[in-house]
């Protein structure tokens, strides 16, 4: 059940880029909180740059978080881009197009990558999957992870979240012939 958005969502100045830089920083952080909360409550891993939730397979056009019909306000695209870039900088979102500054969709990280990594490690430990090769599909979409928060995480994002484990030498990622990560072995 999606949670209702906080009252600040219906505060009209939220939709205008504030000229005062100190205020604007806070305004952007308000937006980030809103987006994270929105994504989490909708269980959305991915959002388009326009602010609507992207679910795999279905291309249904949903309403954007940046448009508030109730008070007839919307955020201009320039400011939306600013919000996204700040989110990426702070590690709260990752662009799906790697290497590009602006991408059409963003993965929303309502937990940080490190936090996801330790959660995944926890799963490996509790599920007794250590020292085994587990496919990423199995990890994120498999039955065994049902009930865990990372269940349903898109595969590329899962691979990203496994990277900190690799750095700590706790995991090894197995790539397929195209260099795409397909499986992981956690020690």
């Amino acid at each position: 059940m999606p949670m209702p958005l906080p009252p600040i969502y219906s505060f009209p100045p939220l939709y205008t880029r504030q000229p005062n830089s100190i205020i604007r920083r806070q305004q952007i952080s308000s937006w980030m909180d809103l987006i994270l909360q929105y994504a989490k409550s909708h269980n959305a891993w991915c959002m388009s740059a326009e602010g609507s939730i992207v679910t795999e397979g279905s291309e249904s056009v949903q309403e954007s978080i940046f448009v508030n019909n109730e008070i007839e306000r919307s955020v201009p695209q320039v400011f939306i881009n600013e919000i996204w870039s700040t989110m990426c900088q702070e590690g709260k979102a990752i662009g799906t197009d790697k290497g590009k500054k602006e991408s059409p969709t963003y993965y929303i990280l309502w937990r940080t990558v490190d936090s996801w990594a330790s959660l995944i490690l926890q799963w490996f430990e509790s599920a007794g999957k250590l020292q085994q090769v587990v496919t990423i599909y199995e990890l994120s979409q498999g039955d065994e992870s049902i009930g865990w928060e990372f269940h349903g995480m898109p595969e590329p994002l899962t691979a990203d979240c496994l990277k900190p484990l690799c750095h700590r030498h706790r995991a090894t990622i197995v790539n397929d012939e195209y260099g795409k990560p397909v499986a992981v072995k956690v020690v």
Binding site: P12, L14, Y15, T16, N20, I23, S30
Partner: peptide
């Protein structure tokens, strides 16, 4: 007031509307 963060603006086609800054406290 805007420079001091006391007032925030809501810019629309109809013009600028002013609001008290009630959400973003100025450090």
């Amino acid at each position: 007031c805007i420079d001091h963060g006391d007032i925030v603006i809501d810019e629309q086609i109809s013009g600028i509307h002013y609001y008290r800054n009630s959400y973003w406290p100025v450090a």
